[in-house]
């Protein structure tokens, strides 16, 4: 009696929230109703005594899949008025798809047949009062059907690799970080000290200070030690290279804004 009431409560909320998933205007609300539907399905599993399945449903679907759904849907820039405009146009197509699905479901139900070999595999799940759900499922999946299970895993692996290959782009402008290289770096081989003449600024020596490995030393004009450097030094010695930039309106900062 009690179990039946609980079942009908779970089932009713499940159907209602599933309806709300497709009818809610706001997609975020839709996803939240979807989560509610998952929860009630987990509740139904619990009533049926499938505690392991119930918990897995919550962990996998609610804890991971729906989080990512919500994550994406929340970031969508949804224009509600624009969405409602499309209803008229897409209603016939949606109706046709729904109708086909409905007729197929009806056909499936009319020709429903139970598997005849159920007796042959029943011995795989010996039931005893002390045996838990988890152990029974483990026996079936990991012992008796291990190869089929592994094949499923391979299909999923292929799908995963496919998704990564399709979405991973190597962007030439992207900056990447190599943590190991950063850890190995020493002060001595990443910085170089320049002798900067008074008032000249560092750019007279070929650019700002940066890690040596990120550019080709010889290609930068005026780098310390190159021919261009000695040239600049020579010019510096007789005072011709010294450029003192004076701001047009007094010192820097005064005339700004």
């Amino acid at each position: 009696m009690m179990t039946q009431i609980v079942f009908y409560v779970f089932a009713a909320v499940l159907v209602l929230s599933a309806t709300m998933v497709v009818s809610a205007r706001n997609p975020v609300h839709s996803v939240l109703f979807l989560i509610l539907a998952f929860f009630n399905a987990a509740g139904l599993f619990l009533i049926a005594g499938a505690e392991f399945l119930a918990m897995t449903l919550v962990i996998v679907y609610v804890g991971a899949v729906a989080v990512l759904f919500l994550f994406v849907v929340m970031m969508l820039d949804v224009n509600f008025t624009q969405m409602r405009e499309g209803v008229q146009r897409y209603a016939p197509i949606g109706g046709v798809v729904g109708g086909v699905l409905f007729i197929e479901l009806l056909m499936a139900f009319m020709h429903w047949r139970a598997a005849t070999n159920i007796g042959q595999i029943a011995h795989l799940v010996p039931s005893s009062p002390t045996r838990t759900n988890t152990a029974a499922l483990g026996d079936v999946i990991y012992t008796h059907y291990i190869f089929l299970f592994q094949a499923c895993a391979l299909v999923l692996l292929v799908a995963m690799i496919g998704a990564i290959v399709l979405t991973l782009r190597e962007r030439p402008t992207g900056r990447r970080q190599n943590i190991d290289r950063q850890h190995d770096r020493m002060v001595a081989d990443s910085l170089e000290m320049l002798q900067v003449p008074l008032g000249a600024g560092v750019d007279a020596q070929g650019g700002f200070l940066r890690p040596r490995e990120s550019y080709d030393i010889a290609a930068v004009p005026g780098t310390y030690g190159t021919a261009a450097w000695s040239e600049a030094e020579a010019r510096d010695a007789d005072g011709t290279a010294l450029v003192i930039k004076t701001p047009a309106n007094g010192t820097k900062g005064e005339g700004d804004e």
Binding site: V28, L32, I35, E51, F52, M55, T56, V58, I59, V62, G63, A64, V67, L70, F71, M74, T132, N133, T134
Partner: peptide, 25 residues
């Protein structure tokens, strides 16, 4: 004292993210 206690804990702790996600949105 349920048989899948640790899964229950894992499930509940994985739900915690919804509070923050919903609050943020």
């Amino acid at each position: 004292n349920i048989n899948v206690g640790i899964l229950y804990l894992l499930a509940i702790s994985s739900l915690g993210v919804y509070g923050m996600l919903i609050a943020g949105w």
